[in-house]
Amino acid sequence: MYPDHLPLRENLKEAHSAAWDAIAGPGDFLTGNARVDVIQTAREALTCAFCDKRKNALSPNAVTGEHETDSELDPVVVDMIHRIRTDPGRLTRSWFDEVTRVISKEEYVEIVAVVASSVIIDTLHNALGLGVPPAPLPRRGRPDGQSNPAAVDGGAWVPILAVNQEMADTGLPNVPNIARALGLVPNALNLFFGTFRPHYALKDIPLSISQAQAEFVAARVSAINECFY
């Protein structure tokens, strides 16, 4: 996915290729076709006039209209993807409740994982001046419907991974809540963190920048995206 001249680590390049390959196949609740459609739908959100109008409104609920889309996904899912892509800082519990009246929480988690993974890959490509990579070619196959019945209510909108918590020397639990967030669908969790992991570490970051520089970048991203976590 990346030209050889860029100083990117091999494990990152391998992780991105693996994520693209995984998204192309059937997930637990979506077909490969639908998962690739999720990538395309997230991309088209960036040029959607309705999303632009909503992003600039005082409240996301203050405007009405229709998304510009070629997606074959349910309109509620298209709206979900466009909002996560273009206005993630103003997602709310009541909005989530509306969405999950139409799709299951398991489908929701899988879509979040695909969107967020593709955001990482597309963002890095664009930032390096490469333009986004071609979407993967979907593979046939049926979703196997596998979720995690042991997921627990941890105060999030969705059930999260159950873990025995211990404190790490980072001052955080050994498994921070964010690493549990997609635990309702283990393959979704694996997809996202397989993509994310080569980019960052809580300590001894394996990059040429210092931990403090990495945290400063991370904190600025969180502030711009209005992320509380």
Binding site: R85, A127, A156, H199, A218, V221, C227, F228
Partner: peptide, 28 residues
């Protein structure tokens, strides 16, 4: 490149946090 690597990662993970309403870890 490494700074952009971190930025792109957090552009994804903030969406996971925001879309799941994940609470802060209690110690944080």
């Amino acid at each position: 490149v490494d700074a952009l690597t971190v930025a792109s990662a957090f552009n994804g993970i903030t969406r996971v946090a925001d879309a799941t309403g994940i609470p802060l870890d209690s110690t944080t």
